[in-house]
Lab assay of single mutants.
Amino acid sequence: MQIFVKTLTGKTITSEVEPSDTIENVKAKIQDKEGIPPDQQRLIFAGKQLEDGRTLSDYNIQKESTLHLVLR
């Protein structure tokens, strides 16, 4: 499924993921596309910071959901 990751600069990254993918996994995909190390990434969805060990389905993230990427 496709999800969108919006950066603070307003850029939107499209990523191909599975509901069973972990947040860590998603951060790795963002690193592949943007070159941002996962340890600098914080992903936010519905006002919550997403934890690395959890999966997209844990957070009820569905296709075409938009996550927000904040850098630390």
Rank of each mutant, 00 (worst) to 15 (best):
S20L: 09
V26F: 05
M1K: 03
S15Y: 15
T9R: 11
E24S: 12
D21S: 08
E64V: 03
P19N: 05
G53C: 08
Q2T: 15
K63S: 15
S65E: 07
K6A: 07
I61V: 09
A28W: 12
D32N: 11
L43T: 00
L67H: 00
K6N: 05
H68M: 13
G10F: 04
A46G: 12
K6L: 12
P19Q: 06
G10Y: 04
I3A: 00
A28S: 11
G47I: 02
N25Y: 12
R54I: 06
S57F: 10
V5Y: 03
P38L: 14
I30A: 03
Y59C: 01
Q40Y: 09
K27T: 03
F45K: 02
R42W: 12
I23E: 01
E34Q: 07
E24N: 08
I23V: 10
R54N: 09
A28G: 09
N25S: 15
S20A: 08
P37I: 05
K48G: 05
E16G: 05
S15W: 15
E16M: 13
Y59I: 02
R72K: 13
V26N: 00
N60M: 08
T9W: 15
G10S: 03
D58G: 03
K48L: 12
D21H: 05
K33A: 13
T14G: 04
V5M: 04
T7M: 15
L43W: 01
I61M: 03
E34W: 15
Q62L: 10
T12G: 03
Y59P: 00
P38W: 14
Q2G: 06
Q62P: 09
K11D: 07
G10D: 04
E51H: 08
T66G: 02
S20Y: 11
S15F: 15
L67W: 00
R42K: 11
L69R: 00
L50C: 02
S65N: 09
A46N: 15
I23F: 02
V70Y: 13
E24W: 15
V26A: 02
I61C: 00
E24P: 02
D52G: 06
T7H: 06
K29H: 07
A46Y: 09
K33V: 12
I61D: 01
T12L: 13
G53I: 07
R42D: 10
Q41L: 12
I30V: 06
T12A: 04
N60K: 09
K48Q: 13
D21L: 05
D52V: 05
V70G: 05
Q31V: 06
V26R: 01
A46Q: 15
V5K: 00
I30C: 01
E18N: 13
L67E: 00
R54L: 11
I36M: 05
M1L: 06
L69V: 05
I36L: 06
D58K: 02
E64P: 05
T55V: 06
E34K: 05
G35E: 04
L56S: 00
D52Y: 04
E64G: 15
G35T: 03
E18Y: 15
A28K: 15
G47W: 05
L71Q: 08
T12V: 14
T66S: 05
L56V: 09
Q62H: 10
N25C: 10
I13S: 03
Q49I: 15
G35I: 02
I36P: 05
G47M: 04
V17D: 01
L71K: 06
T12C: 12
K63F: 07
S65G: 05
G47L: 03
Y59N: 01
L8I: 12
I30G: 01
E34G: 06
T55P: 05
D39W: 14
K11R: 12
K63H: 15
V70C: 08
P37C: 06
S20V: 05
S65K: 04
M1V: 06
I61N: 01
G10M: 04
N25W: 10
I30D: 00
P38V: 15
E64K: 08
P37T: 06
